[in-house]
């Protein structure tokens, strides 16, 4: 009986897709694979769960690729700001040779990535003013996830990067400990951050893919036919998840527009992108394996 880790609540696109994955996998393997999804991160944080998967404490999971970079350095390439042109570009890259290369790197660390899920694009939001150019961010405090790249990104844009636990962000936005944060539409909605930070500026600086993975230990116990069937079920569920996700994004955006948030479209992102040169330079310097991957992603049409 496989144990599945998931950070999202019941009914969320990822949750629904994961549940459909394990059901389909059970059908396709005549019950040789079966399992249960534990939602809401009750089995621990994502960092802990990655570690658990590596030693076989959990059998399958849906991870955002951001935190995986700490364990699998190559994966950090997707955390580079503006690396993907848009969500469709990200799909083409991940479903192609670059995605395969990242899967191989993860496999070496005990994580068998079966399919890529979506988490849309992340944009900045804040409680003070719309952001049209990097100058608008000057002096503002932005909460970022714990990763050098995200800290470097906000600093390169002139903001004050403040790493902070997700659970503290709402109160901090409300009271001004931080001025803003960044996330995708559904999270901006479900976290209620829109209530206290109503300027959502479409920088779309990060497009982070997610992975549906199985632990190498559980994977090794399957026959090649079962592996094939499970992989097929995963890829079908990814297709399903991407569709659900797109619907969820639309739903959240419409809801929040009705709730009175203010969206700022950014026609020309080049000022933001140009500011990223030092972030890229430092990332490549720290981790030379990123250079060829960056090239390949840029060359993917």
């Amino acid at each position: 009986d496989w144990k599945g880790w998931n950070v999202h609540p019941a009914g969320y696109p990822v949750t629904v897709a994961m549940e459909s994955f394990i059901k389909e996998a059970e059908k396709a393997t005549d019950g040789r694979v079966s399992g249960r999804v534990y939602n809401g991160a009750i089995l621990g944080s994502q960092e802990d769960a990655i570690q658990m998967m590596q030693v076989g404490g959990i059998d399958f999971a849906e991870f955002n690729l951001g935190p995986i970079g700490a364990s699998v350095p190559e994966v950090n390439v997707v955390s580079l700001p503006f690396i993907f042109k848009d969500v469709e570009h990200m799909h083409r890259v991940m479903d192609g040779p670059v995605g395969d290369e990242l899967s191989k790197a993860m496999e070496k660390k005990g994580i068998i990535s079966l399919a890529w899920y979506d988490s849309g694009s992340r944009s900045f939001y804040d409680s003070r003013k719309p952001i049209k150019t990097p100058e608008d961010m000057k002096g503002m405090k932005f909460r970022v996830m714990n990763n050098e790249l995200y800290v470097g990104m906000v600093e390169a844009l002139g903001g004050n990067a403040t790493p902070m636990a997700y659970s503290e962000v709402y109160q901090s936005l409300k009271t001004g400990v931080v001025d803003g944060a960044e996330n995708n539409w559904p999270s901006y909605d479900s976290s209620n951050h829109f209530e206290v930070a109503k300027y959502y500026s479409l920088t779309q600086h990060l497009i982070l893919p997610e992975t549906l993975s199985v632990s190498a230990k559980a994977w090794a116990k399957l026959s090649p036919e079962d592996q094939k069937a499970v992989r097929k079920a995963a890829q079908d569920s990814a297709e399903f998840q991407r569709k659900l996700w797109a619907e969820k994004v639309t739903e959240s955006r419409e809801k929040l527009i009705k709730a009175g948030i203010q969206i700022t479209e950014i026609e020309d992102k080049s000022a933001f992108q140009d500011a990223m040169a030092p972030v890229y330079a430092k990332a490549v310097k720290d981790n030379p394996t990123l250079a060829p991957l960056i090239e390949k992603i840029r060359n993917t049409k």
């Binding site: 902070m164 503290e168 109160q171 901090s172 409300k174 009271t175 001004g176 400990v177």
Partner: peptide, 9 residues
């Protein structure tokens, strides 16, 4: 914490 100068921690 209430006024938002600091987080609770």
């Amino acid at each position: 914490a209430l006024s938002g100068i600091f987080t609770v921690t």
